[in-house]
Design a protein around this nucleic acid. Structure first.
Length: 822
DNA sequence: GGGCTTCACATTTTT
DNA sequence: TGTGAAGCCC
């Protein structure tokens, strides 16, 4: 039952890869080539701990890599080292990451070391992509065919809704999305329908939780499909029930490397254990190395995904799981200044239950710039002040690309976006809706999925009446019932129905056409290049026409997206390869040519670094978030603190933290209290800033603010606010420590003149068409359309700045480059 | 089937 | 307050 015959090592000798290096990076490639010739070179750049992490190749290793300590470097060098010293072939190394981005980066960096040998690293990828690869080989063992589809969250929810309704339950009381999350949670823990706790099972659908879960799994098999969780759970099941297969993988993987180990959930942990812990009998046979060569790299202080199933415990108990493990700490930081590190280290020390690390740097910091803490009256002023600060930096030549604003929750982004649009400051939002989640892309994908896997009823159902073909709810139900009755796919059932007289003539006619189309496309699959096939499908189905005839403002964008989809298909060898890519790699490159400030959540900032970082919204209730406190208790608070730590450690040079006194929550203005995390910052490394000259006029330079018991008029007002706040439902802190944080009363408007701006982005998507300071082409009374605010009428024109009365958003001032004639 | 109104809800997100 | 989904009416 071995499935390995097809991909034995590609190179006889790890170092024997052709010397041709990728073009365009000549210098690095030269270094790489040199490194290949003399294996010691690549080690000499490492510090002693890093070097130890690279060279300790035998037995289990846990590398505790603090933020900015060269984690990726260690991982990639370690792989290079294993290859260069002939310890394993590329195909004998299993290297797992969480995100595609991380996998891509690793591939690229290993490529610099070993040239093209990277092609021979078939087992470097995300947990899920490797899971798919394994599952495709043994699909039949769990009742799937190897061409199974991978469903995304949206498909899953639609499927669950069907099942919930089919059980006669009210889908408003038992919300499919909620159930999808429950199932996801169960799968993260490695639970199949039989394993879930009785309480969980009872808590959903009038006690039918377990039955629904079971029915869901059956439907997936019938659809020849998997959800994301199955990509790990099915392999786990296979490993457990087929020891010969597991033994094959044991023989195959000589080295296992895991990135971001603190983020692994229970299922991933089980999967890793199965692969890593070979029973004695295997270890003893042949010349397999004794012990387990597993190397996990992570940072318990950066574990911020507990809420989605990550178990910090996995990293905390590594030494118990893998006896004799070497634990190596990387604490020398190459990213941030001593002040930033001091602040971060001190903050995170408030957490219990850590493995403990203390970051340090011995690089000099010529500017000796402390972390600054700023106060603002409300969120609008916060946005204004940060905007000013950024413009000031920009004038000094600071690239916007090197600046990031990291928020706790995405609603905070809004005030920044509005402000930046107003002053014409380039920004890009990282995260948010993604290319492959757009409606038109998902529709197009559904067509392709049906062609690739005619049993994919979910995809079929999605597009059978898109564009409209008079196949409404009634027709779909009929197809459904027929499929059930005959035990076949909906496509097959449709073929039957189209030839019978059970359907009214009109829908029957269009159904016949649909069936004929799919069968023709299916035939073309063998003979036509997949990009061309996709084009044909979108044309012949009438899908592109549908958008061409659509007069909605975004229809042209959607057509562009479809073209982009086809274009991106060129990068893949076959339709199936492409579909798998889309299912697993839901991201797309952003427009990186533009100089723009990055705006994102703290979560999505993990792993990134910026010269300057702004951290707004440090208030009780928002950060730490009230819900984390309510639902997570102490451990919830600690996770929030780790999030703060992640935020602080993103900054290389400048770090600014902000809090406001008033914030609008669900439409209501609330007084707020500075975050407890502010008190946890060490005095020695921070300064309370009154916003410099921009703010002018309130509070004093107040490093002494931390010397507790004194109050200026401003402070008194702060205290007042706090007292009010504590009586509300937000943050309920006690103790006088709060009093120490500076606060200002700068609620007066300020700031008017700003530097000229050349181009603008909204959400990394739109590039404006006009240049600042040229008179606007629009005049009063013009009807215009704005990406964010919709349609409106121009009320006044001031150079290139327009005041527009939007139908829905009300009156706004925007730059004319952001609107088009409606 | 499309557009309008009403209602509930309002942290973080990858695969 | 403001958004998005679902129901309702034509």
């Amino acid at each position: 039952m071995s499935g390995f015959s097809d991909d034995m090592p590609f190179f006889d000798e790890p170092g024997a890869a052709p010397a041709a290096a990728p073009s365009g990076i000549a210098a690095r490639a030269m270094a790489a080539r040199q490194a290949r010739n003399s294996p010691v070179d690549y080690l000499s750049d490492l510090n002693p701990e890093q070097r130890q992490a690279v060279e300790t190749t035998d037995g289990p290793v846990l590398v505790l890599a603090g933020a900015g300590t060269g984690k990726t470097r260690v991982l990639t060098t370690r792989i290079a080292h294993i290859l260069a010293t002939g310890r394993a072939f590329p195909s004998q190394i299993l290297a797992v990451t969480f995100t595609n981005k991380a996998a891509r980066e690793m591939k690229q960096r290993i490529g610099l070391f070993v040239g093209e040998a990277i092609e021979g690293m078939p087992w470097l990828g995300t947990f899920h992509s490797i899971g798919v690869k394994i599952l495709r080989r043994h699909a039949e063992l769990v009742g799937l065919r190897s061409d199974f589809s991978i469903l995304d969250t949206d498909d899953v929810i639609r499927l669950l809704k069907q099942l919930i309704v089919a059980e006669g339950l009210d889908d408003k009381r038992w919300v499919p999305r909620v159930f999808a999350q429950m199932i996801d949670g169960w799968k993260n823990k490695g639970f199949g329908p039989e394993d879930i706790p009785e309480g969980d099972a009872r808590s959903f659908g009038n006690g039918l939780g377990r039955e629904l879960y079971r029915a869901y799994q059956q439907r997936l098999i019938a659809l020849n499909a998997c959800d994301f969780g199955d990509l790990l759970l099915h392999p786990i099941r296979i490993f457990r029930t087929h020891h010969d297969i597991l033994a094959d993988y044991h023989r195959r993987f000589r080295y296992i490397l895991v990135d971001e180990y603190q983020d692994t959930n229970t299922a991933q942990y089980m999967w890793l254990r199965l692969l890593a812990q070979r029973p004695r009998s295997h270890a003893d046979e042949g010349n397999a190395p004794q012990g387990v060569n597993i190397c996990c790299v992570g940072d318990d202080d950066q574990s911020i995904y507990g809420w989605r199933g990550a178990e910090v415990d996995n990293i905390l108990r590594f030494e118990k799981d893998f006896p004799g493990a070497a634990v190596i700490r990387l604490e020398r930081n190459y990213r941030s200044t001593a002040h930033i590190l001091g602040a971060a280290t001190h903050l995170i020390a408030h957490n219990e239950g850590r493995l403990g690390k203390t970051l340090f740097t011995d690089r000099p910091d010529p500017e000796d710039q402390k972390v600054s803490v700023h106060a603002a009256w409300d969120s609008d002023e916060e946005a204004r002040a940060i905007g000013e600060e950024i413009e000031a930096l920009q004038r000094k030549g600071h690239a916007l690309n090197d600046i990031a604003i990291l928020v706790r929750a995405s609603f905070q982004m809004r005030s920044f976006e509005e402000r930046f649009i107003e002053i014409g400051l380039n920004y890009r939002v990282i995260g948010g809706p993604r290319f492959y989640e757009r409606q038109e892309i998902r529709d197009a994908m559904a067509y392709l999925r049906v062609v690739a896997n005619p049993g994919d009823d979910l995809a079929f159902e999605r597009i059978v009446n898109v564009p409209k073909r008079s196949l409404g709810d009634a027709a779909i139900r009929q197809i459904h019932d027929t499929a059930r009755l005959l035990g076949v796919s909906m496509l097959e059932a449709s073929a039957n129905l189209a030839e019978s007289d059970e359907m009214k003539p009109k829908p029957r006619g269009s159904l016949r056409a649909v069936v004929a189309n799919f069968s023709r496309w299916r035939d073309l699959l063998e003979t036509t290049p997949h990009t061309q096939l996709a084009e044909t499908i979108l044309e012949e189905s009438g899908y592109t026409d549908m958008w061409k005839n659509d007069r909605a403002a975004d229809a042209p964008t959607r057509l562009d997206n479809l073209k982009e989809l086809i274009r991106s298909m060129e990068d893949y060898g076959s339709l199936r390869e492409f579909l798998e890519h889309v299912a697993l790699v839901m991201d797309k490159d952003k427009n990186e040519n533009l100089d723009a400030v990055s705006l994102m959540t703290l979560h999505s900032a993990k792993g990134l670094e910026f010269e300057t970082v702004m951290l707004p919204g440090w208030e009780e209730g928002l950060f730490p978030h009230q819900r984390a406190l309510d639902e997570g208790g102490r451990s919830g608070l600690e996770e929030e603190r780790r999030l703060a730590y992640v935020g602080l450690t993103r900054a290389k040079q400048n770090l600014h933290i902000w809090f406001v006194s008033n914030r609008r929550i669900h439409g209501l203005w609330q007084s707020t209290v500075p975050s407890r995390f502010l008190e946890e910052l060490p005095e020695a490394h921070i300064k309370i800033s009154e916003g410099g000259s921009d703010f002018g006029g309130y509070g004093q330079r107040s490093d002494q603010a931390f010397s507790s018991s004194y109050a200026t008029p401003g402070w008194q007002r702060a205290r007042q606010n706090r007292n009010e706040a504590t009586s509300r439902n937000w943050g309920n802190r006690s103790g006088p420590a709060v009093e120490r944080i500076g606060y200002g009363e700068a609620d007066s408007g300020y700031g008017a003149g700003r530097g000229a701006v050349k181009s603008h982005t909204i959400e990394g998507e739109v590039v404006a068409k006009s240049v600042a300071d040229t008179p606007s082409a629009f005049k009063v009374g013009d009807r215009v359309f704005h990406m964010k605010f919709g349609n409106g009428n121009v009320a006044s024109v001031d150079g290139n700045k327009l005041t527009i009365n939007f139908d829905r958003a009300g009156q706004k001032r925007v730059l004319d480059g952001f609107v088009t004639a409606a």
